[in-house]
Amino acid sequence: MVGGDLYDVCETPFGVRAIIGDVRGKGLDAVQAVAAVLGGFRVSAHEWKDLPLLADRLELSIDRNVTRRSVGDPELFVTALVLELEQDTVRIMDRGHPPPIAVGPHGARILATAPALPLGLKELSPVPGLTTLHRLPPGEVLVLYTDGISEARNCDGDFYPVLERLTEHFRGTRRTDPETVVAFLETDTRNWSATPEGDDQAVLAMALM
């Protein structure tokens, strides 16, 4: 079955923007939803300054391009983070996705968000979501991931503790970089998981230059 994890990064007039998301379900419906969200992001990220409005355009892209098997199908939604990085700050629009983690020599910390409903469920709540703003000091790496990482289970049925494992591994490290963080998560979740052929996993790591 084809999964529904998605991500993209682009440079825009408003700064570097990124998206990571996870479509509910698998198969052709998931492929169609991934194409709609990524296609909408690659166009709208350059046109809409406001992140909540950008997220609304992604909603519109889903409505226009995804064939729902039934009106208001609860299976059709996309959890997503839409981010904007500029200078030493990151703005985050959270549509029901696991929050980002910043990793540095101090360990790891969760960046608080203001979660709104996933993309595709706007009809349940027309209230626009809110963005959060965080500073990223030099040496920190921003880590985004899908729930295939955080919901990987070991033989005892325990979920993979993303924050704790990143803190334990990188605390005291003189330097962290995106490639090293991604490689660690790939290896560590594979060693942790009792079912290597489990859910799809996507990780996106970025550092401000």
Rank of each mutant, 00 (worst) to 15 (best):
E164P: 04
L38I: 15
A183G: 05
M93T: 00
G198Y: 07
M1N: 15
F159G: 10
V181C: 04
A18L: 12
T167D: 15
M1L: 15
L6Y: 02
R153D: 11
R57H: 15
T180L: 09
D5A: 06
P196I: 14
M206W: 01
V82N: 01
G39K: 08
V127Y: 00
L6Q: 07
G40H: 08
D156I: 04
R57T: 14
P52T: 05
L208M: 09
V181M: 03
V43G: 03
P99E: 09
R42I: 11
L119P: 09
L111S: 08
G120P: 08
F77I: 12
V2A: 14
L81A: 04
D29Y: 00
D88M: 06
P100N: 10
R17Y: 05
L136E: 07
P105W: 02
V2L: 15
R190I: 11
H46F: 14
I20G: 03
D94L: 04
S125Q: 02
V162Y: 04
V141A: 06
A30P: 11
G148H: 06
E75T: 13
K122D: 00
R153I: 13
A18I: 01
P137V: 11
V203P: 01
P126E: 07
K122N: 02
R135N: 06
P126V: 10
I92K: 00
V141N: 05
T195F: 03
G39F: 09
A33F: 03
V2W: 05
S125K: 02
D29A: 14
L136R: 12
L166S: 07
M93C: 05
A33C: 04
Y160S: 11
K26N: 10
D73Y: 08
L204V: 00
E86F: 02
H46K: 12
A202F: 03
R24W: 02
F14L: 01
H169S: 03
V16E: 07
A108R: 09
E179A: 15
V127E: 08
P178G: 03
A102K: 13
K26L: 10
T132I: 03
R171S: 15
H169P: 02
A152Y: 09
Q201G: 03
G40S: 12
E140T: 14
G21F: 02
P105I: 05
R17A: 05
V66H: 02
V31Q: 05
V143E: 05
A183N: 09
K26Y: 13
E179R: 10
E168C: 05
W48R: 07
G25T: 14
D29I: 09
V31Y: 00
E186P: 00
D50C: 08
L130E: 08
H97E: 01
